[in-house]
Design a protein around this nucleic acid. Structure first.
Lengths: 330, 330
DNA sequence: GTGAAAGCGCTAACAA
DNA sequence: TTGTTAGCGCTTTCAC
């Protein structure tokens, strides 16, 4: 949509359109109305380019996340769009490989084509080198679901979440727990899973009679089928723990299905809990820990906005509180 | 720092600078080195705006969809990103209100924000007026999940999907069916639901002893809670149909949960089926119709690409085949 | 191999 | 009050 098209549609010259939009007082009210009307109908935004030139900004930020791997990033994205909408800032999305995959040359992909005013990295752990380069050459950046010294970040309190869930299970009488997760193909730095295990360990440490360790159960994949297969194997174990904490609801769901298929009852024989609290958990009556996805996106967007306006700010870490949601599977 | 300054400092013309930077092969190695050297020293960065303008292309497309309302648009988006990745095209996303809401101004006032080479409209029915305007003034556009005469579109064969599902239920002995859907706050033109009902009607028409009509059950919302509440009411009906077709898996899932809570067994007393075949269906053992979400995004992206390259193409309609997935709830 | 020159969409002088 | 026109920084033919 160009100014020429608007001019043509309104039957005036381009300068009249420009004037009507930028200096309304200097054009005949009738003409102005007509121009504005037409421009509105056609969705013409003079601001796009104009503001870019004026403010030396693109009015655009980039969001990178493993959208293809996890449902939950849709919700975070919606939170971001929501937080940015009132500011007329566009969002360019990029899919990222999951953090469990071998380290991708992240910063190779980073030179986001058009310049962006800011960058939102979600679910992407940053190595020292990457962090350094990004900090030096990149636009203002906010991290979601990962932490790095020099960056503002929004994360979920995974340690506390693990603690809450373990506490709940221990209170229910369980003494031996298992943590179910997708396969890690690369060393995930301070991964959420590790933090949650720390929280679980803390709860175990507080509890008399609990074993010091927790079973680490790695699946063959990050989907329902893998979780189901994992459950089949698990159900057959003689020494199996009595409670399973899955890294996210989808895995918990698959595990539940697998247990059912194996004739193992939930929660009588094996208790199962997850993380996220999406529709899946609600429907299955799954005990889980709620993650405020939309909220994290919204907050991250606002932090980024503020960082764009005042680039030299001190990094801030925002830690979102977990919320235990007890249902029928534990 | 402009290209002119670099040219002057390097003792060449601006075109040589541009060539050296963008098409290195086409300039003398010595000249090239010198230019690149000088540009580097001066910290020259080509102005994105000017470049895009000169190139008559931004390398960017916009995607609009009701991301906030339906999980499935994440998958389609991933398909789009996937289809576009090899072409180095950026995607800017916009959330849209669901088509069930009162006609948004967006529809008629298409918000074709500047600077995109193309537009992907997903799940957004286009009114005549909006279609007309978009066609005249908008960038190359591809529709997903909606159809309009002048546009290339990718849709799911909803009629056939409804037919397949009804056929299956009729074969199972059901004679009275219900269609469960979210509330429509606006007249949805040729909505997917209507098409599916047509398909159901076709199947009913072929079957002796089947009632001619199908129950239309409108829920109070588009979520699990609404579906669960709907099931509670449904379970209490004396004249209730024996099979329920939900507009999508999430509703089916909520309905299942509601039936269970009401002590009504599935599929013995009431059969339930949905549409989509996401993880939810897999986990619940839900009979459903698979929609190739990622594929639809991928194809739409490629069609748009082709349309951008040859703008005067005849519109093409792509109809994706449904696939019945029979599980345990029917 | 290189430069001159014609746009690209837009704003702001400057004419009319 | 309007339209005409000269740039803005850049890419890209098309001559030389």
């Amino acid at each position: 949509m160009t100014i020429y098209q608007v001019a043509e549609a309104a039957g005036v010259s381009i300068s009249t359109v420009s004037l009507a939009l930028n200096h309304p007082a200097r054009v005949n009210p009738q003409t102005r109305e007509r121009v504005i009307q037409v421009a509105g109908e056609l969705g013409y935004r003079s601001g796009a380019v104009a503001s870019e030139r004026a403010r030396r900004s693109s009015g655009r930020i980039a969001v990178m996340a493993p959208f293809s791997s996890y449902e939950s990033y849709r919700t975070r994205l919606v939170g971001i769009l929501d937080g940015l909408a009132p500011h007329h800032i566009e969002v360019v999305v990029h899919d990222a490989p999951p953090a469990t995959e071998p380290a991708s040359p992240l910063l190779e992909t980073l030179p986001v084509r058009g310049d962006v005013d800011g960058l939102l990295l979600m679910g992407i752990p940053l190595g020292d080198e990457g962090a350094d380069r990004l900090h030096r050459w990149g636009p203002p950046t906010v991290l979601v679901d990962s932490v790095s010294a020099a960056f503002t970040s929004v994360t979920f309190d995974d340690e506390q979440a693990g603690y809450l869930l373990a506490r709940h299970l221990l209170d229910r009488g369980h003494r031996r727990l298992a943590y179910l997760h997708e396969p890690y193909h690369s060393p995930v730095l301070t991964s959420a899973g590790q933090l949650r295990l720390n929280g679980v360990a803390r709860a175990l440490g507080e509890t008399a009679g609990a074993e010091p360790a927790i079973d680490d159960v790695a699946l063959a994949g990050n989907d329902v089928a893998a979780a189901r297969a994992g459950a089949a194997a698990f159900a057959g174990r003689a020494d199996r723990p009595s409670a399973v904490i899955a890294h996210h609801d989808l895995l918990a769901a698959g595990f539940l299905a697998g247990l059912r298929a194996a004739g193992t009852r939930t929660p009588e024989e094996v208790a199962v809990a997850g993380f996220d609290d999406g529709p899946l958990a609600e429907v299955l009556g799954l005990t889980t820990v709620r993650q405020p996805f939309a909220d994290s996106g919204h907050r991250a967007a606002e932090l980024l906005l503020s960082l764009i306006q005042h680039p030299r700010q001190t990094p801030v870490r925002t830690l979102l509180a977990p919320q235990l949601v007890v249902r029928e599977t534990t």
